[in-house]
Amino acid sequence: MAEDDLLAAATGAIVVGIDDSAGARAALTYGIEEAHRRQAPVLAVTIHHSQAAWAPRVATVLDERAVGEVRGAAQQFVDEVVAEQRERGVVAPAVRVGIRTGSPSDVLCRLSARSLLPVIGDRGRGALTSRLIGSVVLGVVVNARCPVLVVHPGDLPREPRG
Rank of each mutant, 00 (worst) to 15 (best):
M1A: 14
M1N: 13
A2V: 11
E3M: 14
D4C: 10
D5I: 09
D5K: 11
L6H: 13
L7A: 14
A8C: 11
A9Q: 10
G12E: 15
A13Q: 09
I14D: 01
V16K: 06
D20E: 06
S21C: 08
A22Y: 12
L28C: 10
Y30N: 09
E34F: 05
E34S: 05
H36C: 09
H36S: 12
R37A: 06
R38G: 12
R38V: 13
R38I: 13
Q39R: 15
Q39L: 15
A40P: 12
V42E: 02
V42F: 00
V42T: 02
V42A: 00
A44N: 03
T46R: 14
A53V: 03
W54D: 13
A55V: 12
P56N: 00
P56W: 02
V58A: 07
V61I: 15
D63H: 11
E64W: 09
A66P: 01
E69G: 10
R71A: 11
G72Q: 03
A73F: 01
A73H: 00
Q75W: 02
Q75A: 02
Q76A: 08
D79W: 04
E80S: 01
V81Y: 01
V81Q: 06
V81K: 01
V82G: 06
A83I: 02
E84N: 01
E87V: 04
E87K: 02
A92R: 08
A92I: 15
V95F: 08
V95W: 07
V95A: 05
V97N: 05
V97D: 02
V97W: 03
G98Y: 05
I99F: 08
R100G: 04
T101E: 12
G102E: 00
P104Q: 09
D106P: 05
L108H: 10
C109Y: 03
A113V: 15
A113Y: 10
L116N: 13
V119A: 04
G121P: 13
R123M: 07
G124C: 08
R125K: 12
G126T: 06
G126M: 11
L128E: 15
R131T: 13
R131C: 09
R131P: 07
I133L: 02
I133D: 01
G134D: 07
G134Q: 03
S135K: 01
S135F: 02
S135R: 03
S135I: 03
V137P: 00
V141E: 03
V141Q: 00
V141M: 03
N143E: 12
N143H: 15
P147L: 09
V148A: 05
L149Y: 06
V150D: 07
V151L: 02
V151D: 03
H152C: 14
G154C: 08
G154S: 10
R158D: 00
R158A: 07
E159F: 06
P160R: 00
G162M: 02
